[in-house]
Design a protein around this nucleic acid. Sequence first.
DNA 1: CATGAATGAGCCTTCATTCAT
DNA 2: TATGAATGAAGGCTCATTCAT
Lengths: 245, 245, 245, 245
Amino acid sequence: MVELTRKQREIELRTSEILRIARPILISDGFRGLSMDRLAFQMEYAKGTIYNHFKNKEEIVLALVAESMEIRRSLFEQSGIIQGPARLRMMALGVACEFYTQHCADDFAMEQWVRQQGIWDKSSEKRQNLIRQCEEQCMAIVAGIVRDAVLRQELVLPESLGAEELVFGFWAINYGSQVLSHTSPSLPSLGISNPASVIRIHCCTLLNGFHWNPVMDYARSNQESEALAEKLFPVFWTIKNRNRA
Amino acid sequence: MVELTRKQREIELRTSEILRIARPILISDGFRGLSMDRLAFQMEYAKGTIYNHFKNKEEIVLALVAESMEIRRSLFEQSGIIQGPARLRMMALGVACEFYTQHCADDFAMEQWVRQQGIWDKSSEKRQNLIRQCEEQCMAIVAGIVRDAVLRQELVLPESLGAEELVFGFWAINYGSQVLSHTSPSLPSLGISNPASVIRIHCCTLLNGFHWNPVMDYARSNQESEALAEKLFPVFWTIKNRNRA
Amino acid sequence: MVELTRKQREIELRTSEILRIARPILISDGFRGLSMDRLAFQMEYAKGTIYNHFKNKEEIVLALVAESMEIRRSLFEQSGIIQGPARLRMMALGVACEFYTQHCADDFAMEQWVRQQGIWDKSSEKRQNLIRQCEEQCMAIVAGIVRDAVLRQELVLPESLGAEELVFGFWAINYGSQVLSHTSPSLPSLGISNPASVIRIHCCTLLNGFHWNPVMDYARSNQESEALAEKLFPVFWTIKNRNRA
Amino acid sequence: MVELTRKQREIELRTSEILRIARPILISDGFRGLSMDRLAFQMEYAKGTIYNHFKNKEEIVLALVAESMEIRRSLFEQSGIIQGPARLRMMALGVACEFYTQHCADDFAMEQWVRQQGIWDKSSEKRQNLIRQCEEQCMAIVAGIVRDAVLRQELVLPESLGAEELVFGFWAINYGSQVLSHTSPSLPSLGISNPASVIRIHCCTLLNGFHWNPVMDYARSNQESEALAEKLFPVFWTIKNRNRA
DNA sequence: CATGAATGAGCCTTCATTCAT
DNA sequence: TATGAATGAAGGCTCATTCAT
């Protein structure tokens, strides 16, 4: 078995080497900028070798995105298990989002590829499922917190708003701010110099708006967020580094 | 001069004909699906002629996006001038966003092209500015409403939150939900069947969270939004049709 | 119109130049041996240029085959209109076959490509029809001669044998001998040094076997064939040269 | 020696397994459709292993063709040893050809591969000789019958026509009709619905034309052929099955 | 001998752009 | 100004063959 494993490890090593080289190309030049020729050249491997590891170009992207989403899910998982009121866990998720946005900016950017250009359709179902599962798990974690808050009577869901729909609002505001931050270089010139902290305020407002107890003013909210950040960031870094050599 | 003008008009006519034909191709087949050959063939003009109007393929996309943003700005303009409390105007903008998302879905999709794939960098500064200006004007309209609300003492801005930063939250939540709606086909399976109405609730919550008067419950908010929609949609349709034969 | 024609002529010139260069490659190295790269290189034109003339590699082959079959048909046409008994015209066709086999050996070889390897399916219907028509016309010419012989009471068709079916025998024996001559290099070593004259004898025997009047012995048959050859070859050469610069 | 033989048998077993798997691939997808990857995958052996048995892809085809020709030769052998006048043996060969065409259609198709595409040149001389020998033996069988007919004074060879040359006519007509049947899907639409029986008539006519005794009318010829078929087909099936599990 | 990852030349095709007419 | 043939780099991908293990 050890015998076998060595060869397999070598193969996996090569696989992840391909991803390691493809990532920065993809990030700096986009999907169109990643050509198999270039990839092979930079790898100093033959083109055919890459095709032994990935059925086509799209699969490479999906593999990278799967990695990224795996990180995101781990971040969420860690945030969802902290002690304290559900609102705190919700805020911890916000902190996780901030971390992901700031320190895994490339991962976030790449998650976008997959949402466009028919990359999705050209890749294998196996990898597609991997990503879909990750997405569902993320949603489950956040919705779980909402449900827990309701159980603990810290939150009353407005009628006609399911837990997932409440989550959607936070998802949208975070996601939207991240996309805008990444793609609108004019943001500072429009008067938004620190999108992350702005979004923190909005999320607090939103939580307060839903009367999610304990209701907080911005000062306290910020304070708690900082505390959470201090507690969680070490874990987050570990997660990130575990996935990125 | 009249002579010249006629010729210029002919040129502009051709320019907009190119755009008219490029648009549906772009929408149905993406950026890669738009080839100059195909465009020229459908135009029944020569490829070279197209190059007399647009320096390169990217410019065409940017021109189309400029058109789209022009619509969006007009929508915003019309929403910003209705009578009544600033909060109502803010809600009117939400209605405008809904309209844009639902009835100008293609325009929205195209705005995205430009944020990716290096299209931006390959196009002329002139067109880039055009788009940037539009974006700034949109922001100015919304920020103007916020400032007006403050003036009218209907809203107190939290300290450390500028008008534009408050706007950013609404921008982000609307933008995020739109992107997610367009690109995440799994949304309904995650429990979000009607993103638009969900976001309406969230926006109301957010406004309430900021104590933006008149504070409303969801029923009334929805009622007012409906009224605004009824009032504004005719104008919106006019705007849309003016820009799209 | 003269203006227009000049450009069109240039294009057609290029088209036939492509064919002129593709032909020997195809003949010496087969379909697999013809690569667009090689073709372009030998043409000293860019690869793209070739694709402006032919949709794909298969179309080139079909174009060449169409040329070849056009020659064959013209040969048949000329043979079918000579004076005298139908049997003589039938023999003239045999002479035409001999000419084609001997002097258009490459054309014959190429007709084969099209019958295999899915070349047919990848080419445009227009070219397919061209070839199909040619084939049908050839058959029509020969079957016409048979029918004429029956009318003139020079031949009684065996019952249960249609005119086309009688033709099929001659088609098969000529076609078979041509294929074998071209692909069986061992023929002389098997004792067949001059397939063409052997087949001439067989055809005569076959005609006699059917009691096709005037019945001939081999000496006379050969003599008549020679006479026909002498008369027809000049025309044949003209036809060939008209199609091959 | 027994030890060695066991190993050798294993090797031969593997060799024929390769051929067994390659055959249907080749038949359904042509030469280009047979890839070593696919072959190895279906074999559940490694690609390298196949190369221990066959120097290259072409050799596999040649080996299969050798098998096919071996069948053909056996068919001929069996036809050549029946009792009665030589003409009957000649007709038996025709029956053998019909059997081969109808029931070994794939074998026939494959014989064609080898005559084209430069497969021949890329394969070893050893295998080339194998095939050539087979061909010669086939010719020898048929020519033997002709010579025997001359000896028995059932046939007078036209002067200037050797035994092999007489054979060539029959070879050509049979071969030609087979090729045309296999590759010209338009045959029925040209008026030839049953090529095999048409060729039977032509062969009878040819034999009669050579005054090969006993001369027969079509009815009797057909009757005799049927009788031969009834007698020989069981043997033919045995031969076929012996070579194909 | 068996293995199968690595190879890399080669394949066909596309298409934005240019430029002589 | 309009034309559209020519360009040619670039693209994704295949696959027979090799060779270290």
